[in-house]
Design a protein around this nucleic acid. Structure first.
Lengths: 347, 347
DNA sequence: ATAGTTAATGCGAACGTTCGCCCGAACGTT
DNA sequence: AACGTTCGGGCGAACGTTCGCATTAACTAT
């Protein structure tokens, strides 16, 4: 554990009061060329670096941003969060802040983790992710008047700074793409109403809009809702694909990649050829989707940009100039691959 | 931004000096039952929580642990790091430490990030991951005498606390499994010598041992070395599978899941049936491997335990009782799935 | 020559803790 | 009666900064 050089030692070497050294080093005051020179060389030779803790104590801000995320189920991938994290770290570091990563706690307990960090003065602000429709963290932070920015929407009545990806637009692109390939019998794999964050609602909205625009009428039994995991998607798909060819969907739109994979497995087991007899699309464009057989059409979210913007907005708030736009929506991109690129065969 | 209650306010309410309040709250001194009572109720009623920054300044330790990781290429999955991180956060929080996540910097620049955190007193120790064979971070931290623990091995001559998963054992299990299925013609997909961390070396060692034990002689052209990504694995596999059936491998052992996927794609495109004509195995058991078609045999690392142990070892060092074992090796588990569970067909 | 300005620097205080030492009273013990 | 001991608690200092105000000397304008 190395000893650290303090500002007083620098001052002693430069032969000047330590307070003045502080000001000079922070460019807060003008002194004669020679003393300035002396101070800088002394600081460099001794290898002085300001003690972050002391500075925090004095300036009453920790220079830390809290971040916590909901763990992904072990059978699912979550490139999203690691990339998201990289981008918020990248930006925040560039403006002198660090990221404090703290653990997810289930249920209302999560609030306590946030509360604790505030009470002990550990962080200056938060970045929220995986926000739910009525997220208690948001109400809590708002009544504490504690700075935060969210990735994801919540109750639309609430006013708070957030950024989100336009899931409705993504879904519109998917459906329009399928329609342009001649698909008219389109089934949907969504999360259940109960566990639906606004994510599910928005994507559904985009779906329905595009279907309506195309004059397509989707029967209720072609809209499956459930856990959003592999088994749910598999079983729902089996039910559809077990129907006689003329009655089954020619395309399945999954609201997540893992559900798309469930559908693919179902098709394979029933001898339905994905990409030929049946189109399948996912959402998120997780890392391996391009290597599936056939590779999967999916919607890619601009995660890096989301992270950067969230971090930037929070900086604005911390520096006293809150963003003009409280709500930012970014456009996703449709990545068309083999799982959906052939024209529909109305078998 | 809420105002915070200080220890002096508690003292004022309890009618006692603030220094004594500090000691009582930290259980460092005994006082009369009544004053103790008064202090605690005052603290609770006011909602006192010690200011972490001030405490750090006084006690000269930040209560933070630095963690940084090498980003995964965008086409690969990295469940490893998100799980690893969750586990180190989980444990560290339970003993009052927090994690400071800082960005990866390519090349020697990374050292500066570490140096900076040390110099500015931001962290008390580091957890290293993705260590390389001659990792400059290790020499740097050692000469700084700064506490750290690594996930992964480096130069075997160096003595430093680390924990690793026994890749050789994992590979032995893979090869033994294949041999027991009757495979004798086994090809290997490894990283190139140049970019080989000790990870590649160790896995190779296990492979060769098991092959030798089985009396199998693998020709050099069946040991491919390259970037370790999808294209490399795909091309190498195509070369092997293009041979007449009697001359090609009946099994391909990939040193990572992404390489296994490359091999699977190659097989599919050449009409070789994975799991029937050809066995393929991966390493890491990434989230989606169980859903591939066919699902992939892979080696699962006990990541949660690794994270916990690393964090625990670092705590030991920080608290002055360094672990008796500087080097810990954990055993991985072989997960056998369809991609390798049928007996070899020596076509 | 006097007052007013400016430049260069010093000084005390504060941020909220923790830590070691001191002090007085009460209580035995020789 | 003088002397240790223990208990309950106070006090000053320190951790390394930053910040506002004060001070001095030199210089300019009247």
């Amino acid at each position: 554990m190395p000893r650290h050089v303090t500002i007083k030692e620098v001052a002693a070497v430069a032969g000047i009061s330590y307070q003045t050294v502080s000001k000079v080093l922070n460019h807060q005051v003008k002194v004669s060329k020679q003393t300035e020179e002396r101070i800088w060389t002394a600081a460099n030779e001794l290898g002085y670096h300001p003690n972050f803790i002391a500075r925090s104590l004095r300036s009453q801000c920790s220079g830390m941003i809290g971040f916590s995320w909901e763990p992904t189920p072990p059978d699912q991938t979550n490139q999203i969060y690691s990339q998201f994290m990289e981008s918020i770290i990248h930006y925040s570091e560039s403006v002198g802040y660090h990221i404090l990563a703290f653990p997810y706690k289930p249920g209302g307990e999560w609030i306590n983790a946030y509360r604790n960090l505030i009470e002990t003065n550990r962080v200056d602000g938060f970045i929220l992710s995986s926000v739910e429709y009525e997220d208690t963290r948001i109400t809590f932070l708002q009544e504490q008047k504690f700075p935060f920015v969210a990735f994801g929407r919540s109750n639309p009545e609430w006013k708070f700074p957030y950024i989100d990806v336009d899931g409705a637009a993504g879904m519109r692109m998917v459906v329009e793409h399928l329609v342009s390939q001649g698909h008219r019998r389109i089934a949907i794999l969504n999360w259940s109403e109960a566990k639906s964050t606004s994510v599910g609602k928005n994507r559904m909205k985009g779906c329905m809009e595009a279907l309506k625009n195309a004059g397509i009428d989707t029967p209720p039994q072609w809209i499956a809702r459930g856990e959003g995991d592999f088994p749910f998607a598999y079983q729902s798909s089996v039910q559809w694909l077990d129907l006689p060819p003329a009655q089954r969907p020619t395309a399945i739109v999954a609201f997540s990649d893992i559900m798309a994979i469930g559908a693919m497995n179902a098709a394979l087991n029933l001898g339905v050829r994905v990409g030929i007899d049946l189109a399948i699309t996912g959402f998120d464009d997780s890392p391996l989707m391009q290597y599936l057989i056939p590779n999967l059409t999916s919607v890619r979210q601009p995660i890096w940009e989301v992270g950067r913007t969230v971090a930037e907005m929070l900086q604005g708030i911390l520096n006293g100039n809150p963003p003009q736009n409280q709500a930012v929506l970014l456009e996703p991109t449709l990545i068309v691959r083999d799982s959906s690129s052939q024209p529909a065969r109305s078998s």
